[in-house]
Design a protein around this nucleic acid. Structure first.
Lengths: 237, 237
DNA sequence: TAACCGTACTTACGATGTAAGCAAAGCATG
DNA sequence: CATGCTTTGCTTACATCGTAAGTACGGTTA
């Protein structure tokens, strides 16, 4: 029996096929997944369309352009921060706890989306003075409120915001790059022969290569974050 | 009188025309200039060819691909560091002076090439453990030598290298982005109407907007750099 | 002169982003 | 039910891209 009532079931889509219906969020999520799997360079409207069983042009109903698609993907990834239970929009246990949680939340995001993260870092934000990786006005407001409530002056809060942003961008961008995130374009299917640079002229490099390749990112991140918090704390007095 | 001797004048090019002859370095420099003027997105082989009064395909004589062209541009820009008289490859007045000069040299580079700098930051380096923005084995060797000579252990030198890289990437990337560097693709010829985001829900943002837009990058860079040097110094003991 | 070679141009192909128009299916009305 | 509007997706078409392959031409050397 076919109901043709006023309110349709959520599964109302394409009647013959069983394709779950296109919508902007679905496109953005598929885009994020695609980038994580194949890299930004490989993402084309046609290929993303194919991924969704749809022609490229159909995407333009929900996304004005490829550029906007990338912005949307970035935004939707950053928005995951809202659903991280470890991160509080409102500070609960003081500003240091707030910043620690925020930083670690962003780090989790970066590690979870190593291919998307460089986009987060390099795409222009909605307002020129909103900086990556927070990117959203709401988070900046949240940040500034946490700091001013804790006793930072307006100037100090703004300075802290810039220092915090810079710190995160630098550390996370490099950490993610080191993940073999293949940040740029090239997918190098050539591990050993010439990719191994010639170190004969650089004895110290040669000696320290193992140390350099070692992954101590978590510890160093925490140590540098600690130092940053100390520095901010010392400005409070 | 036409000289057809064995050694030609430097102007030996195209006989009829007065075009100065193509070579890789000229292409890379033209590419850097083009990017600074029009942004990376606008750089195509055809357009760069036109800039040099040459067909696109002629460039492929000197540059294997567009990707390699970008890498080459990055490399040639970073190599300017060698000709900065303020920066020493060998430390002369202690490791702190060395790091200060290096950091300021890179900052000058970033400010001079705001459009190219994000490429420096995000392109994969020649070896995975060589990090932006130094990018070259020779500078990494120089860095590590300066630190170990100053009494840092191998582990500490490597850790310092990572901290220093992260610091520079973060600060310079954001500084350059704030330059209106239009880091991404869009050239927005629309300053006032909707580019001005709606701040009604964010009172603190509204109040601090002037502070946030203020450019204090130089001072904050120096302050953060100072803090980093202090932190490294405290590890020495 | 002839052979050669490096340089630059021409042509051509597949892939891209996207403008414009079209078709079909859902809903709201008579 | 018939009619029309709106939403959704497909089709076609075009300029532009990176680049493979072939060609023409001038300078050097023999």
């Amino acid at each position: 029996m076919v109901e043709s009532g006023t309110s349709a079931s959520p599964e109302t889509g394409h009647p013959g096929g069983d394709r779950p219906r296109l919508d902007r969020q679905r496109i953005l999520e598929a885009g994020a997944v695609f980038i994580e799997e194949h890299g930004v360079r490989q993402l084309s409207m046609r290929r993303l369309g194919a991924e969704l069983d749809v022609e490229a042009m159909s995407l333009y109903r929900y996304v004005p352009s490829r550029e906007d698609l990338l912005d949307g993907i970035v935004e939707s990834v950053v928005d995951e921060l809202y659903s991280d239970p470890e991160v509080y929009v409102e500070p609960r246990y003081g500003w240091q706890d707030y910043l620690l949680r925020l930083a670690h939340g962003l780090r989790r995001l970066a590690v979870k989306h190593p291919q998307v993260f460089p986009l987060i870092a390099t795409r222009p934000a909605e307002a020129p003075w909103v900086r990556p990786p927070l990117r959203s006005l709401r988070w900046v407001e949240s940040f500034l409120r946490a700091m001013t409530q804790a006793g930072f002056s307006n100037e100090q809060a703004v300075e802290a915001y810039r220092a915090f942003s810079s710190f995160l961008i630098g550390n996370l961008l490099l950490e993610v790059a080191a993940l073999g995130a293949d940040i740029g374009p090239v997918e190098d299917p050539d591990p050993s022969p010439s990719r191994q640079a010639d170190l004969t002229d650089y004895p110290l490099l040669q000696e320290l290569q193992d140390l350099l390749s070692e992954d101590r990112s978590k510890q160093e991140f925490d140590a540098a974050l600690d130092a940053l918090l100390d520095r901010l704390d010392s400005q409070l007095t």
